[in-house]
Design a protein around this nucleic acid. Structure first.
Length: 487
DNA sequence: TAGGATTGCAA
DNA sequence: TATTGCAATCCTA
């Protein structure tokens, strides 16, 4: 294996993604039984500046990094594994893409955030006042414990869900109470607004520099599922559920006048992968004809003439259920239907897509034999507890076995897309930039004269990541500005 | 001051 | 009684 650049840590991560906090120190210890000198040791646990450390210690400290890395690299060269291909084809090329994204930064209109902050502040004050008036007492609404005292001891509202130490006052509980007690609704709203204000607006404002640019860090070796994660800020959980969330998203703007923010996201990748992997004729045909898959499932579950958008939502949840192997109970809770109904829909799903059921059962069976499952790109995930006698452990292992080949293949698909998109933009010297990745979505800042060509080509690249397969993937283009109305 | 517990946002 | 993350706040040790 010859590469222009290489990463020994990624090599380890590909094989063991569930090990938290991988480090060179740990690898040295594991592979060569060697203890590396720590930063604390050479600075004598004092907060010494590195330049004050004696030369000898500094030399050893530096030498170790190079030496151990080289030992690891040499070891990898000798050790051919099936994971090599993933490293060379996906993980290593991705480094450059992410590097570029991090260097380019994201442009955020700070003034707009400040304006939303004020808006929320008003709303929060109003709610706070109203809540205090209602209970004739002031307390800290942000404290679950104090909310608990007020709701259950002072107002003696019905309690039903427990946490480790007391009765829960989370959104589920409050939501139930809100039917009868308006104060619960007020607390829900209060939490929602304070959440947006502190976690998103204040946090973003803190990280924005004087030029309204924000620098996020993408982490390539932390998740147990080989997905990316991002920190400072985490761009992958920016809200999108209501109008105020979209006000926040609107603050993500182009860096230049006339440029535009465009997002392209994969549509139902997981269900498409389910179709490909299970070879279910009904599913494949539905996708070939570009049908709305959730509507299609609804047609199997309900009489055709009764299908409404709410029925489609149920069907969507059922499709979702299969991929995640959730219990009937989970499904019923998620979409507020009875367990009996949930059970019925799921059986209907299996009747309609018989090969899917076969595929899911075979996946579990094969995992029981081999103790691992594989993704479309041949990543292996060992699930040794698949044969555990404990039913709870066994079923959680089964869920993982079902979920992993599908969801984790989609992580690779977007990584491959990013690499190809990067090469495309570079090859033709386009000015437009890839600025964000949110799991199944890529966000671009586009130069006006390139917009048409970018849209067409990038969508094409994304849809054709899987070659020689029965169906294509689908990627939708959204213009950031109009997204609010579209969703 | 550190870290557990609780909560909630995204895909 | 789905998973993976990041982060805020409260509150105890």
């Amino acid at each position: 294996m010859v590469a222009k650049y290489y990463d020994t840590l990624l090599w380890e991560y590909i094989k063991n993604p569930w090990v938290r906090w991988l480090s060179l120190d740990k690898l040295a210890n594991k592979e060569f039984d060697y203890d590396m000198i720590s930063y604390d040791e050479i600075t004598n646990k004092k907060k010494l500046n590195f330049k004050d450390v004696d030369l000898e210690s500094a030399a050893i400290y530096s030498w170790e990094d190079v030496y151990i890395t080289n030992l690891l690299y040499t070891k990898h060269l000798k050790e051919k594994t099936t994971e090599d291909k993933i490293l060379i084809d996906i993980e290593i090329p991705l480094i450059k893409v992410l590097q570029k994204m991090e260097i380019d930064w994201v442009f955020i209109e700070a003034d707009r955030l400040k304006w939303i902050w004020l808006l929320l502040e008003n709303e929060i004050n109003r709610l706070e006042k109203s809540i205090f008036e209602e209970v004739e007492e002031e307390f800290n609404i942000k404290s679950p414990k104090q909310v608990w005292v007020i709701l259950f001891e002072k107002l003696t509202l019905p309690k039903w869900k427990k946490t480790k130490t007391w009765y829960s006052v989370n959104a589920d509980v409050l939501w139930e109470l809100a039917h009868e007690y308006p104060i619960a609704q007020k607390i829900i709203d209060y939490r929602h607004y304070t959440k947006l204000q502190s976690t998103y607006i204040e946090w973003l404002l803190e990280l924005i520099d004087n030029n309204w640019l924000v620098h996020t860090s993408y982490n390539v070796a932390v998740t147990a599922t080989w997905r990316l994660s991002s920190t400072s800020p985490n761009l992958q959980n920016i809200p999108s559920s209501d109008w105020i969330a979209w006000e926040i998203r609107d603050a993500f703007i182009s860096r230049f006048k006339w440029w535009r923010i465009i997002a392209i996201d994969y549509s139902q990748v997981e269900v498409r992968l389910l179709a490909l992997m299970s070879w279910d004729g009904w599913l494949i045909n539905a996708f070939k004809k570009w049908l709305d898959i959730h509507h299609k499932t609804a047609e199997f579950i309900f009489p055709w003439e009764t299908i409404t958008s709410s029925k489609r939502k149920i069907a969507k949840a059922v499709n979702f259920w299969v991929i995640y192997w959730i219990s009937w109970f989970g499904l019923s809770k998620m979409i507020w239907i009875s367990v009996k109904e949930a059970n019925l829909y799921i059986n209907k799903f299996y009747e309609s897509y018989p090969k899917v059921k076969e595929f899911l059962e075979n996946t579990i069976k094969s995992c029981e034999e081999k103790q691992y499952v594989e993704t479309l790109f041949w990543r292996k995930r060992y699930i040794k507890w698949i044969n555990d006698s404990n039913k709870i452990i066994k079923s959680s292992a089964e869920r993982e076995a079902i979920n992993m080949p599908i969801q984790w293949t989609s992580a690779d698909i977007i990584k491959l897309a990013m690499i190809k998109v990067y090469n495309f933009l570079k090859q033709w010297n386009y000015k437009s930039k890839l600025i964000m990745q949110v799991h199944d979505e890529l966000v671009f800042d586009t130069y006006p004269w390139e917009e048409t060509i970018i849209k067409k080509n990038i969508q094409n690249i994304m849809e054709n990541i899987l070659v020689n397969k029965k169906i294509k993937l689908k990627a939708d283009i959204w213009e950031w500005k109009t997204w609010k109305e579209a969703k």
